[in-house]
Every structure is written in C-alpha cells, then in structure tokens.
Design a protein around this nucleic acid. Structure first.
Lengths: 180, 180
DNA sequence: GCCGCAATGTGGCGAATTGTCGCAGGGCGG
DNA sequence: CCGCCCTGCGACAATTCGCCACATTGCGGC
C-alpha cells in the first residue's frame, strides 16, 4: 500500500542523476520537484509542499544536514531520506538524530528509495545484524562502486581518488562483483 | 567536564575485552559492571543503576538491540553506546532510533568510548561530511582490523572469513596502516 | 573543419603481490 | 606423550599491479 506519498522533493547537485530519478518517480505516479542548493530547495519546498524528500548529503554549496534541518522545520511531517556517496556511520547517526527518515548510500536505485520512503524503517529492518563478515573482495568492490558513482563514473578521477593506477582500476572493473 | 557519568555497564561476550575495558574505566575513576547476556545485564543494571552502558551488538544468546530496548525501559536516562564489529549503517540507524546514545565500531579504545559517552553527539559531530574518499588500501586495512577483532585475533579464521589465504593475511598484517 | 584536451581501451613488460605447499615450533586437552 | 590447531616463515609459480606507450573518441574553442 503506497501510503499517501505523492509529492517528492529531490535535492542533488548531479543534474543527470536527479533527472533520472525524477523521471522514474513520475513513471510510478509521483510528482517530483528538483533542487540543488539551499535556495532552490526552500523555493521548491514552498511550491510543492512535499510529503517526502530525498537529500544528497554532499552538495557543492551547502551540507545536506543543513537542508535537513531546514526542511524539518518548514515541513515537519515530511519523510526525509538522506543519500550519500560513502556512507559513514557518524553521518547517518547525526542525520537520523536530527529527524531524517532513513539513510541510503549511492548508488541507490529508485526501487530502494521508494521502498525506504514508503515502509516504516523499523518494519523494514531485516534485523539481520552483523551476521556475515563481507569478504575482502566484496568490500573493495563496494567501495569502488561508491567512489565511481561519486566521480560521475570517471575512471581516471576515481582511480586517483582510490590511490591506484587507472589501468588497475580498469582491470578491476572488468571483473565480477565478488559473490559474497 | 566529565559530566556526571560514574557508573558504567559493560556488556560484551568477550570476557577479555570486557575486563580490559573495565580496568581502563576504573583507572579513570569510573565504576564498571560487566554482563554478557540478557539475564546478567538485567541483574547488573538493577544492582549498579548505571548512568551509561556499552553494549556489544552481536552477542551469542541475544541481540544488542534487545538489550538496548530493555535498558531504555528500565533506565531511560542512561546513555547507551552501541558497539559492533562491522558497523552497518542500517544497524546504527535502528539503534539510534530506538534510543541509543551513539554507535561505534570495534576495535574502539577506551578513549573513544569515553569521549562518545561524555560529549553530546551533536557537538562532537565534526560536521565533516563525505569529504575525503578513503583510499582503497585504507578501506582494506580497516576492514581487516574489524574482522580480526571479530575473530578474537585468530588469523586463520579471519583469513577464511575474508576470503583470502592465511599466508596473504599474514603478509598484509605486517604492513603498515595505509597513510590515508 | 581543425586543433588541443581529457578520457578511454588495449598491449606489453618488469616488479610486486598472491596462492599454495611444506615444515618447525608453541600451547592445550586427552 | 600424542594429536590438533594456530602461527611464523621459506620457496616458487601464477597472477596482478604499476607504468609507459599508442590509437581512438567526444568536446569545446579558434
């Protein structure tokens, strides 16, 4: 039951990603507004009166945390979902403490985002805890994916950020996502 | 100012780690009680009436989340700090939502733990966001440390859990923590 | 169009890392 | 004393990595 979430506010500095999300949300019957900084977010929030928002934590001009505070004040009832490149636990905790609905790491697809927004977090909690220790290869793969996403898929930049040679990154990317 | 936290409850299944923490806390003028499961936690909490607690999330007989709920009910004012091997963001969020004070990943030293307990999280928040993408080597090293801690320092088991050869883990461990 | 620029795909090669086997030594319970 | 498990370490082949080089492609400016 898709509760009553219709109007969603998207805030991300990556116009491409934003637009892709917006299109996907439209396709699923949601109305989406886009924003990229403090001002446009405030304006869009006023206009749309959203029931939910998706905020990128790292924006060029301001912090997603600031936006979260602002939105929490102007639209206390809105479910605000935080998005970030490399999720750090400290960030996630701070966001939730301020009042974020939930917290996801990029790359997050529309399905994940909608699922996170529409179902109460405590129910969704698989309560699968520490359980399985991820393999080394898995950790590496996930981190590579995050950094890649964060650099817009630019291999050269990502390689430099990761501290490895571009050629090596290319070779790593050709391999498969490690099973576990 | 070390606020008014004096009596701290430690819950962890690893007796050695627990004892080490307890000693360190005593040395800093705190009173510590130890527990390792639901019953002993309830008993110790009754006896000590702690102002703070440190809970391991992964216990053999029960979940730290359950303990968190219990303690939150019996001692609502206590600051409860969650500890875990490989911190997953989902777990952290759930814990904080239930009422945990903060959330740290093992291996956490006494300094970190006390700092987390004595200073309000939102102040401590360096508001350092995504900022720097950790290097690949760094990620690997941190994950190795966690898995090692989780397996009680057993190289053979850790290597298997990590999906690498024991010999390789040995060699990796001889290297230094990557600069970044 | 043409040029420079940055990014990508690919090949090759020496250096470094990893997988694997083996062996010796150190606790520990029977 | 004897297995059993974990550990440290040597050796060697297989693999991977770092690095250079070159061709190609897309893009913006002249």
């Amino acid at each position: 039951m898709n509760t009553e979430i219709e109007r969603i506010l998207l805030v991300d500095d990556d116009a491409v990603y934003r637009a892709r999300l917006a299109r996907a949300l439209h396709g699923r019957g949601h109305a989406a507004a886009e924003a990229w900084d403090m001002e446009s977010t405030a304006a869009a929030a006023d206009r749309l009166d959203p029931q939910a928002a998706v905020l990128d934590l790292k924006l060029p001009t301001c912090s997603g945390i600031d936006l979260l505070r602002m939105l929490k004040q102007s639209h206390p009832a809105a479910r605000i979902l935080m998005l970030t490149g490399y999720g750090s636990i400290a960030n996630a905790i701070e966001a939730v403490r301020i009042g974020a609905w939930d917290y996801l790491t990029k790359p997050a697809d529309v399905g994940q985002i909608l699922a996170a927004l529409t179902t109460p977090p405590d129910q969704r909690a698989d309560s699968g805890f520490d359980a399985t220790p991820p393999s080394l290869g898995r950790i590496e793969w996930e981190h590579i994916q995050r950094v890649m996403a964060d650099h817009g898929g630019n291999i050269s930049q990502a390689a430099e950020a990761l501290g490895i040679h571009r050629r090596t990154l290319q070779r790593k990317l050709q391999k498969f996502p490690p099973a576990n």
